[in-house]
Design a protein around this nucleic acid. Structure first.
Lengths: 110, 110
DNA sequence: ATCATCCATCAAGGAATCTCGATATGTCCT
DNA sequence: AGGACATATCGAGATTCCTTGATGGATGAT
């Protein structure tokens, strides 16, 4: 069985990559690299409708990429501690195995 | 400027992650880990309509994740040599910088 | 030349996703 | 209590994406 083989893991990985597949969400993650930020900061940096930002933050939360901390009326978002390391491993799971083992064409119709 | 900061790079990264955000495409990449394969092999492994497979292969090609080699009436697909390494770097670009530098809350509204 | 095979592409329908405006919830201030 | 503010959620329209079935081009076999 390959590293990434179960149907479940394909679905989990696809969902993770989907969360990363939107420009606005990537901008949010990039802003969070500097540290925890509240929604109002993100909103002024992104210049977009408040409900839209909230939608994308929920998407990132559901994917496990960010965490939220409520403080009074403010919500603070931050990168989830190891989420991006996991995402890197998810990518790595699809790299071809090392040069050991057969790597040459195994086609039926060469 | 952050590692991942230009609008262009956000768009390129989002497009790359989008190509990885579909279960069928991940299964194709997983099959290709064993080496180059022709479309008929992929089709029997995936058990899906031929035009659908072709659509997903085109998506992977457009994202630079796979390469195609034509041989007579057959097309052979393989993982693009460094595509997944690039994808890993694309993920890494969004990790928070090291513990050096300010990482604590910098919110306006703490 | 004719026919079968492999594959890419097209058009159309359906499903998922994004975006916006409006509303709801909870918090702070007076 | 009442009002202002921060944020989440909902409904509807717009957009993008996936899926299917049909068509067409290229290749090889007879």
């Amino acid at each position: 069985m390959s590293l990434a083989a179960t149907t479940d893991s394909f679905e989990r990985h696809a969902a993770l990559f989907h969360a990363l597949s939107d420009v606005r969400r990537l901008r949010i993650l990039d802003l969070l690299r500097r540290g925890e930020q509240c929604v109002c900061d993100l909103q002024s940096a992104l210049d977009c409708a408040q409900s839209l930002l909230s939608f994308h933050l929920k998407t990132l939360r559901d994917a496990g990429l960010v965490t939220m901390r409520k403080d009074g009326r403010w919500s603070h978002y931050a990168l989830a501690p190891h989420a991006l390391e996991h995402a890197e491993q998810a990518v790595a799971a699809f790299r071809s195995p090392g040069l050991r083992g057969r790597r040459l064409p195994i086609s039926c119709c060469a």
